[in-house]
Design a binder for these strands. Structure first.
Length: 226
DNA sequence: CTTTCGATATTCT
DNA sequence: GAATATCGAAAGC
């Protein structure tokens, strides 16, 4: 049943993004547990690719929730987003880091001998390589129904919680949960590499699992307000 | 630890 | 021409 995932992704990205932490994206011989995401929210978000309307590159960002949006970053890297709703708002969550939980040999073949295991899918460009994501081929496919190369499955236990409470309420609870020492399980902060006001405290839409070694190190953009 | 730099597709000025 | 949802290596603290 992917009803829980569908109802979650129907929410705006800043709401659904924290609930994608702990989810697993599977395909092309690997499975990666997502540990770090950033939300981008269409025309109201100056940091979003969709902020200035549809282009050939970003058109799949305007697609239905659960669409994969893959784009070329800095002319070099392939980065992967999961589109969220409402449909037509060009919103989505950038998968920025994860733990390779299956197909480690395949991921290492793609990444080379250098990176440590925790770094195989650390950072959006590296995650794209580890996944074996292909521009053009994968852009616009669904991660919900197995019709595309990748399938997204929710973190254990989340499906049941989303079946018994509205997504926004479940996410509020997730953000409030702490470990035995009182430390939040999910951390949030400004988005990495985003300039201007969109990269500052007004858009604290980067979410990660606190203390997880597969989360990329924060790099502040030159022009970010902070 | 920090800063700097090169690689370079897409978009905007 | 300039900026960008990046990465890894190199050099200087």
């Amino acid at each position: 049943m992917t009803d829980a995932l569908r109802s979650l992704l129907a929410e705006p990205a800043p709401i659904s993004a924290p609930a994608l932490l702990g989810a697993t994206i599977t395909g092309r011989g690997v499975a990666i547990r997502v540990t770090e995401v950033e939300a981008y929210h269409g025309p109201t978000d100056p940091g979003s690719h969709g902020h200035r309307g549809m282009t050939e590159r970003n058109r799949h960002l305007f697609g239905p929730p659960g669409t994969l949006y893959a784009y070329r970053s800095y002319g070099i890297h392939t980065c992967v987003n999961v589109v969220s709703g409402p449909e037509g708002t060009s919103a989505g969550s950038l998968l920025r880091g994860g733990e390779v939980v299956a197909g480690r040999d395949t991921a290492r073949e793609r990444r080379g001998p250098r990176p440590a295991d925790v770094a195989l899918a650390r950072g959006p460009g590296n995650l794209g390589v580890a996944l074996g994501a292909v521009l053009g081929t994968d852009d616009g496919t669904s991660v919900l129904d197995g019709s595309g190369p990748f399938v997204l499955t929710l973190a254990p236990g989340l499906e049941a919680r989303l079946a018994s409470a509205p997504p926004a309420a479940v996410v509020d609870d997730l953000l409030a949960e702490t470990d035995a020492a009182g430390v939040p399980r999910i951390s949030r902060g400004p988005r990495t590499g985003v300039g201007g006001i969109a990269g500052g405290a007004s858009f604290p839409w980067r979410f990660w699992l606190t203390g997880d070694p597969t989360v990329s190190t924060y790099r502040r953009h030159k022009g970010a307000f902070d």
